[in-house]
Amino acid sequence: MAVHTANAPAAESAAKKESKLAGLAKFRELGLLAFILLLAIGVQIRNPSFLTIENVMDMATNTAILSILAVGMMLVLVTRGIDLSIGATLALSGMLVAQIVSASAGFSPLLAVITGIGIGTVCGLVIGGLVAWLGVLPIIATLAMMNIYRGFTYMASDGKWISSYQMPESFVGIATSSVLGINTLILIALFIYIAAYYFIGHTRTGRQIYAVGSNPESAKVTGINEKKILILVYTLMGGLSGLCGVLWVSKFASAQGDTASGYELSVIAACILGGVSIAGGSGKLSGVILGAVLIGILNNALPMMDVSPFWQKGIEGTIILGAVLLNAAVKRGVERNHLLRRRI
């Protein structure tokens, strides 16, 4: 079953012949989509300024960083891992890049982004090494590194924040500029998704990630270098976190020691909502996008609906739990249908 879901993007073309089956297989994402649409309509009734172009753009901009991280987290989850350190990696890369940029104003934004990715990649590589070579369990390795990276961030910051006036215009411009009226952050996120779509569905390495996730033993027998794949996945995650660190600092024009503290849970929640299985092997980009969008809508809509701030967490929890359980129930129904079909 896990393999089936993993193959879904590839199966799409073949599925045209069996439209009914494809319809069923896609139902999961459709359910989530329908849920999002219903939610959007509900919010729109309460507050007519919800579905304006401006607000949708704002939401997309605010969700961009979350959705970029969710791609990396999906790959980690697919290999049966988890990465709790991304908030700390993000903060570390953001803080270091902000310090570099504030010290030398001539630092080009592109170079800043590359530096951030580089720092994140190193952070991710360390975790990948721990997980792949030393066989440390991902949750423990990333928990430990979360503490360590966060500590480094505080140390590097020396108790200071890097504020907007210390950052050159060009650097802040990374997140505020727009091309054809679309914010750069959204474009970067789109680019990452297209690249990820190609990488996951159409390259050998991308497929190997799923193979390792759904059955490590048989992957090994098939000659897949499991260690290489694991290191790759955590390094990618680190690189994306590093990228997001730069984007975050540029977006908020401020680098703090406690930047994005606890953000990893939002990212994991987005993946889970998108149907990525913690047990590995399954997870689709389309699901992850929808999951991130749902979290983004919740963050944006609850304040706009004038919901008491004290109810927000409770509502968020109920929706996440409800969506996850509903997804599971629907999936069961789909599987039962598969079985019924087989009997006929």
Partner: peptide, 17 residues
């Protein structure tokens, strides 16, 4: 929190044009 403060501000601007 940076991100929450930003979305709260945006919500204020939209809810009360």
């Amino acid at each position: 929190l940076r991100d929450k403060s930003v979305s709260e501000t945006e919500a204020l601007l939209k809810t009360y044009p």
